[in-house]
Amino acid sequence: MAWVGGTGAFSGLLVIALGIVTLRTGWIVPTARRHVTRPHRHGLGAPLTGSSVVLRGLFCFRVLPSVSWEARFFGGNALLLTGLLLIGPSRLPPPRRSRDHGDPSGV
């Protein structure tokens, strides 16, 4: 069962690294490039989502001091949900502008 925690921790570290690269350079993985319209928001959500998985792996290997299962469960889910709430809207198309957007006088 330790391989589950190790695989999760490794994939979480990979997601965190990709999120940091996205924040610093704006680069998106080629498979997601077509779908992501807001790279900054995607870059903020990826480390949060990855840290949730890494923390669960660290608790599995007892690297971190043990806390109650409620704190691990709700804390990990809060990180995961926050990350997904940032990643989800990053894939929405940009808002449309109205035709008279360039004319501030309203005439």
Results as ranks from 00 to 15, higher is better:
R24Y: 10
S98D: 12
L64N: 08
L14M: 13
P95S: 10
R91F: 07
P95Y: 06
D103V: 10
S90R: 00
G45N: 01
F59V: 05
S11H: 05
T25F: 04
P95L: 13
N77E: 13
G6K: 05
S90Y: 03
G19E: 02
L14H: 03
L23V: 04
V54A: 10
E70W: 08
V29I: 14
F10M: 15
R24C: 10
V54C: 10
S52Q: 05
R24L: 14
A32S: 12
G102N: 06
R62T: 11
F73A: 14
T25C: 04
N77C: 09
L58N: 06
S68G: 15
P104A: 08
H35I: 15
R33M: 01
T37V: 05
R97F: 12
A71L: 15
S51I: 06
L84C: 14
L86P: 00
R38S: 08
T25Y: 10
G75L: 02
N77Y: 09
S51W: 11
T49I: 12
S90H: 06
G6W: 11
T22A: 12
F10T: 15
S98R: 14
F74E: 09
L79R: 00
A9R: 01
V107P: 12
V4S: 10
S105A: 14
T22R: 02
M1W: 02
G106S: 11
G6M: 06
R34G: 09
S68F: 01
G45P: 00
P94F: 07
F59L: 06
V107E: 11
R97P: 00
I28W: 03
F74W: 14
P104I: 09
F61R: 03
A78K: 04
V67L: 11
W3M: 11
G106Q: 07
